[in-house]
Every structure is written in structure tokens, then in C-alpha cells.
Design a protein around this nucleic acid. Structure first.
Lengths: 150, 150
DNA sequence: CATGTGGGTTCTGTTTCGGAACGCACCCCG
DNA sequence: CGGGGTGCGTTCCGAAACAGAACCCACATG
């Protein structure tokens, strides 16, 4: 299978990965969530080659995850900002962080923590069902094919 | 930066991606969550080359995400099963699915849905704070560096 | 003995990547 | 005006990863 054929797949995991499944893409997005928006800053933060960075930013823009916003003319300069679609990737990043802190830890505990903006309360992200609020675990849910009517 | 140097990074996203950031790895894990456990089944389901599949399975086993469980001797055969560490990746998969269904949809709506095993209630996964139950959105949380004492 | 199955390894040619240099439009400084 | 700095890429080359296909081996079955 060619990598860009993934977007034709029915499976939602495959479709998501066709956009963000690249090695560097999630690291770029991590930096965007941190507030890094400019090419030069991304490049020095990530250590990725400029060529690859330019390519990924173009693809993320084409996918509607980032948008180029001009911040000056003459010379034309712009920054890359997360769109709503990009912001919606936050759960993916948070899940990765949660998993890494639990299973690939660094000594001294998690180097960064999340807290609510309004009251500073520490956050421990978990997945629940939106309606019932019930906790989702690997064992208490199952997937079901929604063929014609679900 | 070399790809396998990622595991030395402090950033938890980078550490997670050093394990599962490969193109194929999350697709392999998706199949494992579906119950596919054997080399031959994975290969035909994914369309990945046998070489790459063998390599990724070895790496996932080394990372403790999958384990080889023998199911017969003579000839020795084994299957790959998710460990606890692997099962804990479920939120990552669920977030990807949620994002893809919202932003890279297929016509006719999501092809598979999740429900609770005990009562069959449809699940819509969202992230909340484990303690307070408050919903997590891209805008209402912030990250904070935990330098010495957090 | 021929065929099939499960689980790989070995080849070869194509993509992709990393590293470094180069290009270009502009600014500021003297 | 000349030289350096900045921001954002593009071009080039050798190295790594990949896809596709063939091959291998230990069995089981007929």
C-alpha cells in the first residue's frame, strides 16, 4: 500500500493517519499547541530538515489543520496557526502524553503538567462517554460495524 | 535528528512517538485491538510488506506493547497480543477515530461505532479531568513546566 | 511425494530522509 | 553604498527506509 492511499480507506484510523501519521507531523503539531508558529522557530525546535518541514507544513495547510496567517508584508511573512480542525487534535496529543508519562517515563516524573486555565487545578485527562460520563476502558467497550442502519 | 533518538527526548509526545510514531505501527495496533493476532492475518489485512511487518512486531514486542504468546509447538507458532501497556493505547486510537469521523468523514457517516459491552449504549468518547469530571477543550487548559516542584 | 500453511528472510529498485549549502527579499547599521 | 542578519524556503547528494517479489524452512495433510 502506498502511504497516500490511506485516505481512501474506510477505517477512520487510516484516514486520520493519512493526515497526521507522518513521523514529524505530530511533533510539529505539538509545537503549534505550545504556541510556536513560525518556520524558523519550528525548525530549530524540532531539528527537522527545512525541506521536510516545508513539505509537512504545506500538507497540513492543505489538510486544513494549519492555516497561514500573514503577519507582515514586504517581505511577505506569515505564521502557521492551528485551525479549529487542528485544535480538535488536542485529545490525540493528550492521550499520547498520558501514555508516555505512564509507560515511557523520564526520571523525576512528568516534565510538564496540565491545568485548567481559570483556576489552575491540575488535570488528569481520561476518556469518558459524553452522555453518560462513564469511564472508557480497554475492556468495557466494543466496536460495532454500522452497516446500513446503526 | 535521527528517528530513534526521539526516545531520549524529555517531551512525552516525542517519547510516545519513538514507540508508536511509525507509519505502520498504529495500523498494526488497530488490528490488534480488533482481535487480529497472527502474522499472516496482519499482513493480508494491512497490505504491509512482510519485512516491515516483522520489523515492527519485533519493535513493539521489545517496547512491551505486544507480547508473543505460543499457541502451538511443532512447528513453533505464536501470536501477538496486546499487553496492558498496549491496551493503554486505546485512548490514542479512540481520539484518532473521533477526529477522523469529525474531520475526514466518509460518506454515510462513521463506519463503526463504539458501545458499552454490558448494556450496548452508544459511546461518544470525550476527554475530561479524572478528578473533577470537567470537560477538556483546546482553550480551557494550559501546560505548565514542572521544573523542581510541581 | 506434492501441496499447503505459518512465519519469516533475502533480494532489488524506488522513495524518502538527513545534512548541508544556496537563493532571495528585505531590514538595519555604518 | 556594502555587509551582515533574518525569514523562508529550494537544491543537491549520499544514506536510510520502503515496496514488491521471491525464497526458505518446519511441519501437516493427502
Amino acid at each position: 500500500m502506498r502511504w497516500n492511499e490511506l485516505s481512501d480507506e474506510t477505517c477512520p484510523v487510516a484516514r486520520a493517519l493519512s493526515v497526521i501519521g507522518d513521523r514529524w507531523t505530530l511533533l510539529i503539531l505539538r509545537d503549534c499547541f505550545r504556541g510556536t508558529r513560525r518556520f524558523e522557530r519550528l525548525q530549530e525546535s524540532l531539528g527537522v530538515t527545512r525541506h521536510v518541514l516545508a513539505d509537512r507544513l504545506r500538507k497540513l495547510e492543505a489538510a486544513g489543520v494549519l492555516e497561514r496567517v500573514p503577519y507582515q508584508e514586504r517581505p511577505p511573512r506569515h505564521e502557521y496557526r492551528l485551525t479549529e480542525r487542528g485544535l480538535d487534535l488536542q485529545p490525540v496529543l493528550l492521550s499520547l502524553v498520558g501514555w508516555a508519562d505512564a509507560h515511557v517515563p523520564v526520571e523525576g516524573g512528568p516534565p510538564l503538567v496540565y491545568e485548567f486555565r481559570d483556576d489552575g487545578a491540575r488535570i488528569e485527562p481520561v476518556m469518558v462517554d459524553a452522555r453518560s460520563g462513564r469511564r472508557i476502558t480497554p475492556r468495557n467497550i466494543r466496536a460495532r460495524l454500522r452497516s446500513a442502519e446503526g
